[in-house]
């Protein structure tokens, strides 16, 4: 490949915050279009190539999941700094999704249920410890949708968004054409 065509490729970063990686699986579900995709874009920081830190500026950042801990906030802030266009991919990035079901319950009650009093805890936690090691990300008081933490440019709904919607969105972003949000691909589940 000539350096010129390499330069013309848009650079894409992806991450999964408080998500289940389902949106990344949906991205892989574009199937044979993956070959077209790698002609169109170069992946940078992403679980797909396991690049962990930003070493260059990216054109497109795809963010799956909302923010449930301080590490999510850090990663999302880094994405905002290094990506020209940031896309919230999926229900969790858009509104917190299933992790946000805890948003109506005080954090202490959640932790007590998970580590002390819950039916499945039994005697698994004899020291009655709620993990608080400094190496573990600190959990936030509630789960925040991405756009409540940084400015997000676009939103792709779905749980997960269909592979066709992700593909259409990537093609639109790379080609600079307007995205036709087809009814068939526009779903919340």
């Amino acid at each position: 490949m000539s350096p010129k065509s390499a330069k013309a490729k848009k650079i894409v970063a992806t991450t999964s915050l408080a998500g289940c990686f389902g949106c990344h699986m949906s991205l892989l579900d574009i199937d044979e279009r993956l070959f077209d995709l790698i002609e169109l874009v170069e992946f940078h920081k992403s679980p797909i190539d396991d690049i962990k830190t930003f070493t260059k500026e990216c054109d497109i950042g795809l963010v799956e999941g909302g923010c449930c801990n301080d590490e999510n906030v850090h990663v999302l802030t880094e994405f905002r700094k290094h990506c020209r266009v940031l896309v919230a991919v999926g229900e969790c990035a858009i509104m917190g999704g299933l992790p946000a079901m805890r948003n109506t319950i005080p954090l202490k009650e959640c932790l007590d249920e998970a580590y002390l009093g819950g039916a499945t805890v039994a005697d698994c936690n004899p020291g009655r410890v709620i993990p608080c090691d400094p190496d573990i990300p600190k959990i936030l008081n509630r789960v925040y949708p991405c756009h409540e933490v940084v400015k997000m440019d676009y939103f792709l709904p779905g749980c997960p968004p269909s592979a066709d919607l992700i593909w259409d969105a990537l093609v639109a972003l790379v080609s600079g054409k307007e995205l036709a949000l087809e009814y068939r691909t526009f779903k919340f589940d």
């Binding site: 229900e91 999704g97 079901m101 948003n103 589940d189």
Partner: peptide, 27 residues
């Protein structure tokens, strides 16, 4: 409200969701 479409039994048959589709409510 707390509208979590992915875990709702009515998803796909819900009028509120259908209107959100019609108006392409992303967020």
């Amino acid at each position: 409200g707390n509208h979590l479409c992915p875990s709702c039994e009515r998803s796909g048959n819900c009028e509120l969701q259908a209107l959100a589709y019609r108006y392409r409510v992303t967020v």
